[in-house]
């Protein structure tokens, strides 16, 4: 009799594969990695918030010093003068530190928008100028952007963004699939800091406005129009750089009283 088998053995199935449910595995991993990424983004953001104000404003200014306002087109000349006038009024009351200088720019764009960037450069679009009729309304928008500069928000946002991108790139490497899951969630967390900045800028802006004008009627004009046009963003708040307009308007109105 041969000592070789006459047929292949029947092997148990669960030795080379694990029997745990794949969904359970996935959820445990998701929660674990989520916590780690959350902590990482949080600490980087806090680091950026506290360290970037230590960068002297003059450095920021040097980078964008050569940025000159191009000549404003003829039809907008009047609007530009109004912008300059209101800007000067607000700037006087903004109580900036002595080394900070502000520059106002007019942008030929129909979309109502205003933003502040590195070096104290503030941009206001033609669309916003034609939408916001009252001087107090325009002053509130400008004061909001000045407040961003005052609190060093542009450099904070920039350094936070760069740091998060860098750390993510180092950790994830070419791990494509994890990248597509983790990067958006990291970005979403970082946006929370942006919303906190908006609230802070709103508060400071109201304080500036209170010093510049006697009557505060119409200071919320831009926010009111924006809310009427786009409506409340509701639950999608998590995905926005700016906080929910309705909540913001309530806060601003309270502060204005």
């Amino acid at each position: 009799m041969s000592n070789y088998p006459s047929e292949n053995p029947q092997l148990p199935e669960d030795i080379n594969i694990s029997t745990s449910h794949p969904l359970k595995d996935f959820l445990v991993l998701l929660v674990g990695v989520g916590c780690i990424v959350g902590l990482l983004v949080l600490s980087i953001s806090l680091l950026a918030t506290y360290l970037s104000p230590l960068v002297p404003f003059s450095w920021e200014h040097q980078v964008l010093e050569s940025w000159q306002q191009p000549a404003v087109d003829e039809p907008y000349q009047q609007e530009f003068e109004r912008l300059l006038r209101v800007f000067k009024l607000v700037e006087k009351q903004s109580e900036l530190e002595t080394d900070m200088t502000l520059h106002i720019h007019h942008m030929d764009s129909e979309i109502p928008n205003a933003f502040a960037t590195l070096g104290g450069h503030i941009f206001v679009t033609q669309g916003l100028l034609s939408q916001v009729q009252s001087d107090t309304g325009l002053a509130m928008v400008i004061a909001h952007e000045i407040a961003h500069v005052k609190h060093r928000h542009p450099i904070q946002a920039l350094s936070r963004g760069v740091l998060i991108q860098l750390v993510m790139a180092v950790i994830l490497g070419d791990n494509g699939m994890a990248n597509s899951l983790i990067s958006p969630s990291g970005t979403m967390l970082a946006l929370k800091f942006n919303r906190d900045m908006e609230y802070q800028a709103d508060e400071t802006a109201v304080a500036i406005i209170k010093r510049s004008f006697e009557t505060l009627d119409g200071a919320d004009e831009f926010f009111r129009i924006a809310l009427e046009e786009h409506g409340s963003s509701g639950w999608s708040d998590v995905f926005q750089t700016h906080p929910d307009m309705a909540a913001r308007l309530v806060r601003i109105r309270q502060a204005l009283k």
Partner: peptide
């Protein structure tokens, strides 16, 4: 005294990032 047949063991592992 007796041959029983083919057996195999395998695993896939990774180190943390």
């Amino acid at each position: 005294v007796q041959h029983l047949g083919l057996v195999q063991g395998s695993t896939v592992r990774a180190k943390h990032a």
